[in-house]
Every structure is written in C-alpha cells, then in structure tokens.
Simulated scan of single mutants.
Amino acid sequence: MQNRRASLSDVAKALQLSPSTVSRALAGHKDVSEATKERVRLLADELHYQPNQLAAALRRGRSNTLGVLVPHITGHFFPKVLDGIAVEASKAGFSVMIFQSNEDSKQEKKNIELLMNSQVEGILVSLANTTTDFSHFELARQQNVPLVFFDRVMEDFRGSNVSAVILDDYLGAYQLVSHLIEQGCTRIAHLTGLRHLNIHRNRHQGYRDALTAHGLEINEDYVAQCEMNQYGGAQAITEMLKLPAPPDAVFASNDLAAAGAMQVIKAHGLRVPHDVAVAGFSNEAFTTLTEPMLTTVDQGCETMGISAVRLLQKMLNPNPDRLAQPRNVVLKPKLIIRESSLRRP
C-alpha cells in the first residue's frame, strides 16, 4: 500500500468491514456506531486515505468539474484567460481540468475524448490553429454537453448546447488601422496568421475595410501570411522592406510578430515610428518593455474567461422564465496607443 494510493477497499479489508460500512462511517451516518466510526477514521488517517471526490460526485450525478482546452499556456493571453476561468469556476463551486493542444488538431481530438470520458459538466475550448475538421466536437454536441468556445471559435458549428465568447477582432483591427492612417501612414502592411481562424480572418477584414473607408488602395504586396511569432514577423517584414515603396507602417495580427518586425526595421537603420510605425494585437506583457513601447489592442483576457464560465452556467441552469438564453458574448476591444505608432502629436 506504500507504493500506491490507499483505497476504500484497503481500509475495509484491514478492518474486516464491508466497503459500504466504511463509506458510511466516513460520512458520519447514524446507522454506524461511534466505535466503528473511530476505528475507520484512525486507520484512514494512518493509511493517508483520501476519498475519490470525482467518483463520489459521479454517483450523485454531478462531477462539478469543467474541462478547459487551450492551444498553449505560454505568453500573456491564455494564462490570463485561464486565471479568469479558474477564479469564476471556483466561485461557482466547480473544479477545472486544463489541457493544451500545443496547436495540434490531433492532440486536441485526444483531449476532447479524455474530457468526455471524465464526464465533465461542460467544456470551454479555444481551437488549435491547425484545426480544420471539427468532427471530434460532434460527440459533445450529440450528448448535450455544454460547449463554450472562446477567442478561436467555430462560427458555423451550432447547437442548443453550443455558445461562444469572442472579442470584436474586426473592430479592434479597424480602429488600429484607422489610427495609423490618422498618423499619416499610407502604405500599411499587414502580417496575418492562418485565416481559417476567425481571429485572423476578422482582423484582416478590419484592416482591409479601414483602408477602403479612408480612400487608400489595398496592395496585396503589403499583406503577408506568416507564423505569428517573432521569427515569422521578422521574416515577413524583411521581404517587404525590399519593395520599391516599402511600408511606412506595420499592423501585425499579434504582438510577437509586431516585435519581430520592429527588430528588423531598427536593424535596417529605420526609426520607429518616424520611418515605420508599428502596432500589434493582444497587449502582451512585454509590449511596455519594447523600445519604443508597442501600440496594441487589449483583449480583456480575464473578462473573456469569466464570461465563458458564466455563459456555461446559464447553459447548465437555464432560466425557465426566459424564452431564449444568450448564446454568444462579444467583448469590445480597447485600443492602447503607445509610442511605436505616434508620428504626430
């Protein structure tokens, strides 16, 4: 027993009692004598026995556990969202199981299967960037397990048990590009990620519509799909700086790519923002440490996590007095203007 966790059966066998009697003794049932309760408690302490709370909850028909699946737990965004989820879930009496897909759709599928086998009461998920087939979510939809997608969502995946919490990425991008235009920028590059993901698709559309609304032509030479990291941003802007009329501003779909672009721009002897203004998206913690500090869009990470849990609670406990429960939450972005884009007072 020293090499494994003591079980209820171990305690029962040692005391020559039935497992049900041990269970009732530990629960303080009146039909078990005080002497037996004391014997059970003493041995349970000696063996460091801990009851299986999940199994007990399942016997009651509730696991009180939420599953969470994120692409990764690096950087600023997802850890902050997870913090919001954990705090709000704890307030509601839920435990949280957290898995990461590592941006791998196959791992995402395995994790969903594990969560379903664990009989979680609901699943909060942000998609891997390689996910294009959504069939692994079908079982949850069919079994009516509440699914709340956040940030990276499936816009065409619907059901009575499917909801979403997203940021208005389109508005954030539109406002940011409009700001760059107001600073006198006319050749604005856009570094975008895979556009089958709603976040990059909507930010790209906001970029295009802002240019059009301000009377600027869309030049596809200034649009690059790249890895959303420092290397990807650096590589993309290196090629653009070779153009006959290189960009005078860069809007990256995340802050890491923007930081990579900024490094290359400065390495070419150009000044940020005077020669090339730079802006990102997400408000990562390092954006106040760059030189100059990086203009970006705050996504309200904790609010997204809190909203996802609250939405799931409404799905678990629908209000019979309301004809329809809210199925989606759209958060407003916050433009954070810093020195990297300020070309005019």
Rank of each mutant, 00 (worst) to 15 (best):
V32F: 08
A55H: 03
T238R: 15
R39H: 12
I181W: 06
M240K: 07
Q313C: 11
T132A: 10
L194Q: 13
L115T: 03
A89D: 06
K37R: 15
F150V: 06
R344F: 02
F94R: 02
F157P: 00
M154C: 15
N117A: 15
N117V: 01
V272E: 05
N144A: 14
R4I: 04
L256M: 14
L115A: 09
L26S: 10
A12C: 09
K37D: 05
I218Y: 11
N129M: 09
G215H: 08
I166Y: 00
T131R: 03
Q142K: 15
I166K: 09
A56W: 03
E121I: 05
Q183P: 03
V11L: 15
A236W: 02
S23N: 12
R24N: 10
L42D: 12
L211W: 08
R41Q: 11
Q230I: 10
Q225R: 11
S178F: 07
E46I: 07
E339D: 13
P146A: 05
V70L: 15
S18Y: 05
F286H: 11
H196G: 09
T132H: 12
E291Q: 14
D209A: 02
R141A: 04
T132F: 12
T130C: 01
S135V: 05
M154D: 07
L331M: 13
Q16P: 01
A140N: 01
F149K: 01
R39D: 06
K30L: 14
Y231I: 13
